Simulated scan of single mutants.
Amino acid sequence: MRFVLVPGAGGAGWYWHRLVPELERRGHSAVAVDIREDDPDLGLPEYSDITLAAIGDDRDDLVLVGQSMGGFTVPMVAARVPVRMIVLLNAMVPLPGETPGAWWEATGQPEARLAADEAAGRGTDFDEVTHFLHDVPDDVAASGASEQRGPSDTPFGQPCEFERWPDVPIHVLAGADDRFFPVEFQRRVARERLGLEADVMPGGHLVALSRPAELADRLASYLDA
């Protein structure tokens, strides 16, 4: 099986660098998509084009994995190429035609994060270390400092252009320790938007960096099922 790994906001393919060898050790191939999401000339349609270009001509047995904001790219790609399976990993789950900018209020993510932070006794202002890197090994986080880039404003006002989710297995996989998209928030969104129960594994928002072997096992288990 060939895993197509679509990164979250910023589009750094580096995010997947610990997961790719784990998938290969399990007999699969993987392509880590890199998207210059800091380029204001690029938006959701271009993200889809770049992902398709990364896939290339070999389009058999594809599994799309979308991390965080990559959840907006995945259904647009799936509308253009046949896929065997979709995995939404700590992902934004869009409705057809929804924009990333509208998603936050529509799903109630800001309120869910604030409530989780208050319940845990954390500060309520967003902090990259607190909300993204809290369970990522220090050496891994340090090695990725030069890879970080923020997304431009361009995609946030663009609709996610797909008519419906494809009729293939779709799995919502949530990190139990995700502080940005709290697990109960992800469970609710999965039920409301996909009619699915989210699966939960240990790890925070950046689980491909913090627990790559466990994530590879979980992805492989979906194929076995």
Rank of each mutant, 00 (worst) to 15 (best):
M1R: 11
M1K: 07
M1F: 13
F3H: 13
V4C: 12
V6C: 13
P7R: 04
G8T: 04
A9I: 00
G10P: 03
G11F: 01
G11C: 03
G13P: 07
Y15L: 13
Y15M: 10
Y15R: 00
W16I: 05
H17V: 00
V20P: 05
P21Y: 12
P21W: 13
E22G: 07
E22L: 14
L23E: 10
R25Q: 13
R26K: 14
H28K: 06
V31E: 10
V33E: 01
V33I: 09
I35V: 13
I35F: 01
R36D: 12
R36G: 04
E37I: 07
E37T: 06
E37P: 05
D38L: 12
D38W: 14
D39E: 09
P40E: 08
L44E: 07
P45Y: 06
E46D: 15
E46Y: 04
S48V: 15
D49L: 08
I50F: 09
L52M: 14
A53Q: 12
I55K: 10
G56H: 07
D57M: 04
D60V: 03
L62E: 07
V63C: 14
M69G: 06
G70S: 08
G71H: 07
F72V: 00
V74W: 04
P75D: 02
M76N: 00
V77E: 06
A78C: 08
A79G: 03
A79N: 05
R80D: 07
P82D: 12
V83R: 14
V83F: 13
V83Y: 15
R84L: 03
I86L: 14
I86H: 04
V87K: 15
N90F: 09
A91M: 12
A91W: 02
P96K: 09
G101K: 11
G101T: 01
W103C: 02
T107E: 02
G108K: 08
R113D: 07
A116H: 14
A119H: 02
A120C: 02
G121E: 04
G121Y: 07
G123T: 07
T124P: 09
D125Y: 03
F126E: 04
D127S: 13
D127V: 01
E128L: 10
E128K: 07
H131R: 15
V136D: 14
A145W: 10
A145F: 05
A145P: 01
S146C: 00
E147C: 12
Q148R: 15
R149Q: 15
R149F: 00
P151T: 08
P151N: 10
S152Q: 01
G157L: 04
G157K: 12
P166F: 12
D167W: 11
D167S: 12
P169W: 10
H171E: 10
V172A: 05
L173G: 01
A174Q: 07
G175R: 12
D177V: 06
D177H: 06
D177G: 03
D178G: 03
F180Y: 15
V183H: 02
E184H: 02
V189M: 03
V189C: 04
E192S: 09
R193L: 08
E197F: 00
V200S: 00
V200L: 01
P212M: 09
A213N: 06
E214R: 14
E214K: 13
D217E: 15
R218C: 11
L219M: 03
